[in-house]
Protein backbone atom coordinates (compact mmCIF):
# COMPACT_ATOMS: atom_id res chain seq x y z
CA UNK A 1 0.00 0.00 0.00
CA UNK A 2 2.55 2.61 1.15
CA UNK A 3 6.06 1.72 0.07
CA UNK A 4 9.22 3.72 0.58
CA UNK A 5 12.39 2.23 -0.89
CA UNK A 6 15.77 3.65 0.02
CA UNK A 7 14.48 7.18 0.43
CA UNK A 8 17.04 9.89 1.18
CA UNK A 9 16.34 13.59 1.30
CA UNK A 10 18.16 16.87 1.80
CA UNK A 11 16.49 20.30 1.90
CA UNK A 12 17.46 22.79 -0.83
CA UNK A 13 20.91 24.30 -0.44
CA UNK A 14 21.84 21.98 2.41
CA UNK A 15 24.47 19.29 2.23
CA UNK A 16 23.52 17.07 5.17
CA UNK A 17 20.51 14.85 4.40
CA UNK A 18 17.62 14.87 6.88
CA UNK A 19 16.71 11.27 6.00
CA UNK A 20 18.96 8.51 4.67
CA UNK A 21 17.90 5.22 3.14
CA UNK A 22 14.46 5.05 4.71
CA UNK A 23 12.34 2.05 3.73
CA UNK A 24 8.78 1.34 4.84
CA UNK A 25 6.08 -1.08 3.75
CA UNK A 26 2.70 -0.38 5.29
CA UNK A 27 -0.28 -2.54 4.35
CA UNK A 28 -3.80 -1.34 3.54
CA UNK A 29 -6.13 -0.79 6.49
CA UNK A 30 -3.45 -0.63 9.14
CA UNK A 31 -2.48 1.96 11.71
CA UNK A 32 1.28 2.48 11.55
CA UNK A 33 2.86 4.47 14.36
CA UNK A 34 6.18 6.20 13.77
CA UNK A 35 8.24 7.08 16.84
CA UNK A 36 11.07 9.56 16.85
CA UNK A 37 12.69 12.17 19.03
CA UNK A 38 12.13 15.80 18.06
CA UNK A 39 14.45 16.68 15.20
CA UNK A 40 14.58 13.08 13.98
CA UNK A 41 12.91 14.09 10.69
CA UNK A 42 9.31 13.15 11.48
CA UNK A 43 7.73 16.18 9.78
CA UNK A 44 9.98 15.66 6.76
CA UNK A 45 8.97 11.99 6.46
CA UNK A 46 5.29 12.96 6.80
CA UNK A 47 5.66 15.45 3.94
CA UNK A 48 7.45 12.87 1.78
CA UNK A 49 4.66 10.31 2.18
CA UNK A 50 2.06 13.01 1.44
CA UNK A 51 3.88 14.14 -1.73
CA UNK A 52 4.76 17.66 -0.51
CA UNK A 53 8.40 16.73 -0.82
CA UNK A 54 9.67 17.23 -3.44
CA UNK A 55 6.62 18.90 -5.10
CA UNK A 56 6.57 21.97 -2.87
CA UNK A 57 9.74 22.04 -0.81
CA UNK A 58 12.15 21.16 -3.60
CA UNK A 59 15.41 19.62 -2.43
CA UNK A 60 17.18 16.37 -3.27
CA UNK A 61 14.92 13.31 -2.97
CA UNK A 62 16.22 9.89 -4.01
CA UNK A 63 14.63 6.45 -3.74
CA UNK A 64 11.00 5.68 -4.54
CA UNK A 65 7.74 6.55 -2.78
CA UNK A 66 4.55 4.84 -3.88
CA UNK A 67 0.98 4.70 -2.62
CA UNK A 68 -1.31 1.96 -3.96
CA UNK A 69 1.38 1.16 -6.54
CA UNK A 70 1.38 4.72 -7.87
CA UNK A 71 4.66 6.63 -7.66
CA UNK A 72 3.99 9.87 -5.77
CA UNK A 73 6.71 11.68 -7.72
CA UNK A 74 4.79 11.13 -10.96
CA UNK A 75 1.62 12.82 -9.69
CA UNK A 76 0.63 16.46 -9.69
CA UNK A 77 0.31 17.79 -6.16
CA UNK A 78 -3.48 18.16 -6.51
CA UNK A 79 -3.73 14.46 -7.40
CA UNK A 80 -1.31 13.44 -4.67
CA UNK A 81 -3.34 15.20 -1.98
CA UNK A 82 -6.53 13.49 -3.10
CA UNK A 83 -4.85 10.15 -2.28
CA UNK A 84 -2.98 11.04 0.89
CA UNK A 85 -4.37 13.38 3.55
CA UNK A 86 -1.98 15.29 5.80
CA UNK A 87 -2.75 16.66 9.26
CA UNK A 88 0.02 19.08 10.25
CA UNK A 89 1.38 19.52 13.75
CA UNK A 90 0.17 23.05 14.57
CA UNK A 91 -3.65 23.17 14.43
CA UNK A 92 -3.77 26.98 14.43
CA UNK A 93 -1.86 27.02 11.15
CA UNK A 94 -4.15 24.41 9.67
CA UNK A 95 -7.16 26.73 9.94
CA UNK A 96 -7.60 27.98 6.39
CA UNK A 97 -8.83 31.43 7.40
CA UNK A 98 -10.93 31.37 4.25
CA UNK A 99 -14.07 30.43 6.17
CA UNK A 100 -15.84 31.96 9.12
CA UNK A 101 -17.51 28.98 10.84
CA UNK A 102 -16.31 25.52 11.86
CA UNK A 103 -18.93 24.01 9.54
CA UNK A 104 -17.54 25.84 6.50
CA UNK A 105 -13.96 25.27 7.64
CA UNK A 106 -14.52 21.50 7.62
CA UNK A 107 -16.12 21.78 4.18
CA UNK A 108 -13.29 23.92 2.73
CA UNK A 109 -11.44 20.97 1.17
CA UNK A 110 -14.66 19.50 -0.23
CA UNK A 111 -15.46 22.86 -1.84
CA UNK A 112 -12.01 22.95 -3.43
CA UNK A 113 -12.47 19.47 -4.88
CA UNK A 114 -15.89 20.46 -6.20
CA UNK A 115 -18.04 18.03 -4.16
CA UNK A 116 -21.79 18.63 -4.62
CA UNK A 117 -23.59 20.49 -1.82
CA UNK A 118 -25.91 17.71 -0.51
CA UNK A 119 -23.03 15.26 -0.25
CA UNK A 120 -20.90 17.94 1.38
CA UNK A 121 -23.57 18.54 4.04
CA UNK A 122 -23.84 14.80 4.74
CA UNK A 123 -20.11 14.33 5.07
CA UNK A 124 -19.61 17.36 7.31
CA UNK A 125 -22.43 16.18 9.58
CA UNK A 126 -20.91 12.71 9.71
CA UNK A 127 -17.41 13.77 10.81
CA UNK A 128 -18.86 16.30 13.23
CA UNK A 129 -20.71 13.42 14.93
CA UNK A 130 -17.62 11.24 14.86
CA UNK A 131 -15.45 13.85 16.62
CA UNK A 132 -18.15 15.43 18.81
CA UNK A 133 -17.94 18.77 17.02
CA UNK A 134 -21.72 19.28 16.70
CA UNK A 135 -21.96 22.09 19.29
CA UNK A 136 -19.06 23.98 17.70
CA UNK A 137 -20.25 23.97 14.08
CA UNK A 138 -21.49 27.56 14.03
CA UNK A 139 -18.59 29.05 16.00
CA UNK A 140 -15.57 30.77 14.48
CA UNK A 141 -12.59 28.39 14.27
CA UNK A 142 -10.45 31.20 15.70
CA UNK A 143 -12.49 31.31 18.92
CA UNK A 144 -11.78 27.67 19.77
CA UNK A 145 -9.25 26.27 22.23
CA UNK A 146 -6.10 24.62 20.86
CA UNK A 147 -7.58 21.16 21.47
CA UNK A 148 -10.83 22.04 19.71
CA UNK A 149 -8.87 23.50 16.79
CA UNK A 150 -6.94 20.25 16.59
CA UNK A 151 -10.18 18.26 16.36
CA UNK A 152 -11.39 20.61 13.60
CA UNK A 153 -8.07 20.12 11.77
CA UNK A 154 -8.48 16.33 11.96
CA UNK A 155 -12.14 16.55 10.89
CA UNK A 156 -11.18 18.73 7.90
CA UNK A 157 -8.89 15.96 6.64
CA UNK A 158 -11.02 12.92 7.51
CA UNK A 159 -13.95 14.47 5.65
CA UNK A 160 -11.97 14.23 2.39
CA UNK A 161 -11.96 10.40 2.67
CA UNK A 162 -8.47 9.95 1.31
CA UNK A 163 -7.38 6.29 1.32
CA UNK A 164 -4.30 7.26 3.34
CA UNK A 165 -4.11 9.62 6.29
CA UNK A 166 -0.75 10.94 7.52
CA UNK A 167 -0.93 12.65 10.91
CA UNK A 168 1.90 14.64 12.47
CA UNK A 169 1.36 14.60 16.27
CA UNK A 170 -2.40 15.01 15.92
CA UNK A 171 -3.16 14.87 19.65
CA UNK A 172 -0.49 17.25 20.99
CA UNK A 173 -3.06 19.78 22.25
CA UNK A 174 -5.76 17.35 23.34
CA UNK A 175 -6.70 16.25 26.83
CA UNK A 176 -6.67 12.48 27.59
CA UNK A 177 -10.36 12.09 26.74
CA UNK A 178 -9.93 13.90 23.41
CA UNK A 179 -6.84 11.83 22.62
CA UNK A 180 -8.68 8.56 23.28
CA UNK A 181 -11.55 9.75 21.08
CA UNK A 182 -9.17 10.47 18.20
CA UNK A 183 -7.55 7.03 18.50
CA UNK A 184 -10.99 5.38 18.60
CA UNK A 185 -11.92 7.27 15.42
CA UNK A 186 -8.70 6.08 13.78
CA UNK A 187 -9.60 2.49 14.67
CA UNK A 188 -13.01 3.01 13.05
CA UNK A 189 -11.33 4.38 9.91
CA UNK A 190 -8.99 1.37 9.82
CA UNK A 191 -12.12 -0.81 9.87
CA UNK A 192 -13.25 1.02 6.73
CA UNK A 193 -9.96 0.15 4.97
CA UNK A 194 -8.19 3.45 5.49
CA UNK A 195 -4.46 3.38 6.15
CA UNK A 196 -3.23 5.66 8.92
CA UNK A 197 0.38 6.74 9.43
CA UNK A 198 0.63 8.50 12.76
CA UNK A 199 3.66 10.32 14.17
CA UNK A 200 3.05 10.21 17.88
CA UNK A 201 4.76 9.72 21.20
CA UNK A 202 1.86 8.61 23.36
CA UNK A 203 3.27 5.09 23.65
CA UNK A 204 0.51 3.42 25.61
CA UNK A 205 -2.15 4.49 23.12
CA UNK A 206 0.06 3.39 20.24
CA UNK A 207 0.41 0.03 21.92
CA UNK A 208 -3.37 -0.28 22.12
CA UNK A 209 -4.21 0.92 18.62
CA UNK A 210 -1.24 0.61 16.26
CA UNK A 211 -0.72 -2.52 14.17
CA UNK A 212 2.93 -1.80 13.54
CA UNK A 213 5.52 0.62 14.91
CA UNK A 214 8.59 2.16 13.29
CA UNK A 215 11.38 3.98 15.09
CA UNK A 216 12.98 6.93 13.32
CA UNK A 217 16.43 7.81 14.69
CA UNK A 218 19.76 8.90 13.26
CA UNK A 219 18.07 9.89 9.96
CA UNK A 220 16.80 6.40 9.29
CA UNK A 221 14.37 3.68 10.37
CA UNK A 222 16.23 1.78 13.09
CA UNK A 223 13.52 -0.60 14.23
CA UNK A 224 10.21 -1.86 12.90
CA UNK A 225 7.72 -4.45 13.99
CA UNK A 226 5.01 -5.47 16.39
CA UNK A 227 4.21 -2.69 18.93
CA UNK A 228 4.75 -4.98 21.91
CA UNK A 229 8.24 -5.92 20.72
CA UNK A 230 9.24 -2.38 19.76
CA UNK A 231 8.06 -0.82 23.01
CA UNK A 232 9.98 -3.42 25.03
CA UNK A 233 13.16 -2.78 23.02
CA UNK A 234 16.05 -1.94 25.34
CA UNK A 235 17.42 0.60 22.81
CA UNK A 236 14.43 2.98 23.06
CA UNK A 237 16.31 5.16 25.55
CA UNK A 238 19.27 5.52 23.16
CA UNK A 239 16.86 6.73 20.49
CA UNK A 240 15.39 9.26 22.98
CA UNK A 241 11.93 7.74 22.70
CA UNK A 242 11.23 7.06 26.37
CA UNK A 243 9.13 4.11 27.47
CA UNK A 244 5.68 3.34 28.84
CA UNK A 245 5.05 3.83 32.56
CA UNK A 246 4.67 0.02 32.92
CA UNK A 247 8.12 -0.51 31.46
CA UNK A 248 9.54 2.18 33.72
CA UNK A 249 7.99 0.61 36.82
CA UNK A 250 9.34 -2.80 35.87
CA UNK A 251 12.80 -1.33 35.27
CA UNK A 252 12.73 0.43 38.66
CA UNK A 253 11.62 -2.83 40.25
CA UNK A 254 14.56 -4.66 38.64
CA UNK A 255 16.96 -2.15 40.11
CA UNK A 256 15.65 -3.14 43.53
CA UNK A 257 16.14 -6.78 42.82
CA UNK A 258 12.61 -7.63 41.81
CA UNK A 259 11.60 -9.34 38.53
CA UNK A 260 15.07 -10.86 38.32
CA UNK A 261 15.85 -12.50 35.03
CA UNK A 262 12.86 -10.98 33.22
CA UNK A 263 13.86 -10.44 29.57
CA UNK A 264 10.73 -8.88 28.11
CA UNK A 265 9.65 -5.91 30.18
CA UNK A 266 5.89 -5.20 30.26
CA UNK A 267 4.46 -2.47 27.97
CA UNK A 268 0.83 -2.59 29.06
CA UNK A 269 -1.22 -2.83 32.23
CA UNK A 270 -2.12 -6.47 31.56
CA UNK A 271 1.48 -7.48 30.99
CA UNK A 272 2.63 -5.56 34.07
CA UNK A 273 0.03 -7.24 36.25
CA UNK A 274 1.04 -10.59 34.81
CA UNK A 275 4.80 -10.21 35.40
CA UNK A 276 4.37 -8.87 38.90
CA UNK A 277 1.89 -11.65 39.70
CA UNK A 278 4.42 -14.23 38.41
CA UNK A 279 7.21 -12.61 40.37
CA UNK A 280 5.11 -12.52 43.56
CA UNK A 281 4.11 -16.11 42.96
CA UNK A 282 7.74 -17.13 42.53
CA UNK A 283 8.63 -15.74 45.92
Amino acid sequence: MIRLDGVSYAYPDTVRPVLENVSLDIGRGTIAGILGASGAGKTTLAKIIAGFIPHVDGGELSGTVSVEGQGMGDLQLAEAVSRVGLVIQNPFNQISGARYTVREEIAFGLENFGVARPEMQDRVGEVADLLNLGPLLDRSPYELSGGQQQLVAIASMIVLRTPVLVMDEPTSQLDPAGTRMVFDVLSTLRGAGITVVIFEHKLELLHQHADVLYVLADRSIVAAGDPTDILADAHLAEWHIGSTRYTRVARAAQKRGLLAGLRHLPVSLEQAVAVFADDGGAR
Partner: peptide, 20 residues
Protein backbone atom coordinates in the same frame (compact mmCIF):
# COMPACT_ATOMS: atom_id res chain seq x y z
CA UNK B 1 2.71 25.58 7.46
CA UNK B 2 -0.41 27.35 6.33
CA UNK B 3 0.35 26.88 2.67
CA UNK B 4 1.02 23.16 3.26
CA UNK B 5 -2.32 22.81 5.06
CA UNK B 6 -4.15 24.60 2.25
CA UNK B 7 -2.58 22.46 -0.47
CA UNK B 8 -3.45 19.36 1.53
CA UNK B 9 -7.07 20.44 1.31
CA UNK B 10 -7.05 20.86 -2.45
CA UNK B 11 -6.58 24.64 -2.67
CA UNK B 12 -4.42 24.11 -5.76
CA UNK B 13 -7.03 21.89 -7.38
CA UNK B 14 -8.33 22.92 -10.76
CA UNK B 15 -11.77 21.44 -10.10
CA UNK B 16 -14.74 23.79 -10.34
CA UNK B 17 -15.39 25.04 -6.79
CA UNK B 18 -18.64 24.29 -5.01
CA UNK B 19 -19.98 26.07 -1.94
CA UNK B 20 -21.46 24.65 1.26
Amino acid sequence: DRSTAMEARGFGSTARRTSL
